[in-house]
Simulated scan of single mutants.
Amino acid sequence: MLREFNGEFHGNGRPDELYSKLIRNGAVMHMKNTCTAAARDVKIRSPGWAVEAAARMGSGAG
């Protein structure tokens, strides 16, 4: 849904400020705050190499 919206929105020359207001601060925030995963939903797991790389990056951030 968001990919389709992005194509239509940016393809019609709408301003970036409006995009942020509608999507980042509107629809996406609403989905983050109201949607929960169901037991039947597919879980996306990070591959081990990615977890290790993130841990290395994180340890250098402090």
Rank of each mutant, 00 (worst) to 15 (best):
M1Y: 07
L2S: 03
R3M: 08
E4T: 12
E4G: 13
E4S: 10
F5Q: 01
F5D: 02
F5M: 01
F5T: 01
F5G: 00
N6E: 15
G7L: 02
G7A: 02
E8M: 12
E8F: 13
F9D: 03
F9Y: 15
H10Y: 13
G11R: 00
G11Y: 00
G11M: 00
N12K: 07
N12P: 05
N12T: 14
N12F: 03
G13H: 01
G13A: 03
R14V: 04
R14K: 12
R14M: 13
P15A: 00
P15E: 01
P15S: 01
D16H: 10
D16I: 11
D16G: 07
E17P: 02
E17S: 13
E17A: 12
L18G: 08
Y19E: 04
S20W: 05
S20V: 10
S20R: 15
K21E: 14
K21A: 14
L22C: 02
L22P: 02
L22I: 08
L22R: 00
I23R: 00
I23P: 00
I23D: 01
I23M: 06
I23T: 03
R24F: 03
R24V: 13
R24I: 11
N25D: 11
N25S: 08
N25R: 06
A27K: 07
A27M: 15
V28S: 05
V28Q: 06
V28M: 10
V28P: 01
V28W: 03
V28A: 10
V28F: 06
V28C: 05
M29Q: 15
H30V: 11
H30T: 14
M31N: 09
M31K: 04
M31Y: 09
M31T: 12
K32T: 05
K32N: 06
N33G: 09
N33E: 13
N33T: 13
T34S: 08
C35Q: 10
C35T: 11
T36H: 08
A37Y: 04
A37W: 02
A38E: 15
A38I: 04
A38F: 05
A39F: 03
A39K: 13
R40D: 14
D41Y: 03
D41E: 03
D41T: 02
V42N: 04
K43A: 13
K43S: 11
K43M: 11
I44D: 03
I44M: 07
I44K: 08
R45W: 01
R45C: 08
R45A: 14
R45Y: 05
S46C: 13
S46K: 15
P47E: 06
G48V: 10
G48H: 04
A50T: 05
A50S: 10
A50K: 10
A50C: 09
A50E: 13
A50Q: 11
V51S: 10
V51T: 10
V51L: 08
E52G: 07
E52N: 09
E52F: 05
E52D: 14
E52V: 12
E52S: 10
E52Y: 06
A53Q: 12
A53K: 09
A54Q: 07
A54H: 06
A54P: 05
A54R: 09
A55W: 04
A55K: 11
R56I: 11
M57K: 14
G58R: 06
G58V: 04
G58A: 08
G58F: 04
G58E: 12
S59R: 14
G60V: 05
G60E: 14
G60N: 12
G60H: 08
A61F: 12
A61E: 14
A61P: 07
G62H: 11
G62Y: 09
G62P: 15
